Amino acid sequence: MNVSLSSGAAGTPSNRILDAVAAQTDSDPVDLPPLYDTIDPEVLDSLVETMDNGAISFTYAGHEITVAHDGELAFSD
Rank of each mutant, 00 (worst) to 15 (best):
Met1Phe: 08
Met1Cys: 08
Asn2Pro: 09
Asn2Phe: 10
Ser6Met: 11
Gly8Val: 08
Ala9Cys: 09
Ala9Gln: 11
Gly11Asn: 03
Thr12Cys: 00
Thr12Gly: 01
Pro13Ala: 05
Ser14Leu: 09
Leu18Glu: 06
Leu18Tyr: 02
Leu18His: 04
Val21Lys: 03
Ala22Asp: 00
Ala23Gly: 09
Ala23Val: 09
Thr25Ala: 14
Thr25Arg: 13
Thr25Cys: 10
Thr25Phe: 08
Thr25Gln: 14
Asp26Cys: 09
Ser27Arg: 15
Ser27Ile: 02
Asp28Arg: 10
Pro29Arg: 03
Pro29Cys: 09
Pro29His: 06
Val30Thr: 13
Val30Leu: 13
Val30Ile: 12
Val30Lys: 10
Val30Gly: 02
Asp31Glu: 12
Pro33Asn: 08
Pro33Glu: 12
Pro33Tyr: 04
Thr38Pro: 07
Ile39Gly: 00
Ile39Glu: 00
Asp40Leu: 06
Pro41Glu: 02
Glu42Asn: 15
Val43Gln: 14
Val43Lys: 14
Leu44Asp: 03
Leu44Asn: 05
Leu44Phe: 10
Asp45Val: 02
Leu47Phe: 07
Glu49Asn: 13
Met51Tyr: 04
Asp52Lys: 07
Asn53Gly: 14
Asn53Phe: 14
Gly54Leu: 07
Ala55Asp: 13
Ala55Ser: 15
Ile56Met: 10
Ile56Tyr: 01
Ser57Leu: 07
Ser57Lys: 11
Phe58Glu: 02
Thr59Ala: 08
Thr59Gln: 06
Tyr60Ser: 02
Tyr60Lys: 10
Ala61Met: 08
His63Asp: 01
Glu64Trp: 09
Glu64His: 12
Glu64Ile: 14
Thr66Ser: 07
Val67Tyr: 08
Val67Gly: 04
Val67Gln: 03
Val67Asn: 02
Ala68Tyr: 15
Asp70Trp: 03
Gly71Trp: 02
Gly71Cys: 04
Glu72Met: 15
Glu72Asp: 14
Glu72Thr: 15
Ala74Leu: 13
Ala74Tyr: 09
Ala74Trp: 10
Ala74Asn: 11
Phe75Leu: 13
Asp77Pro: 14
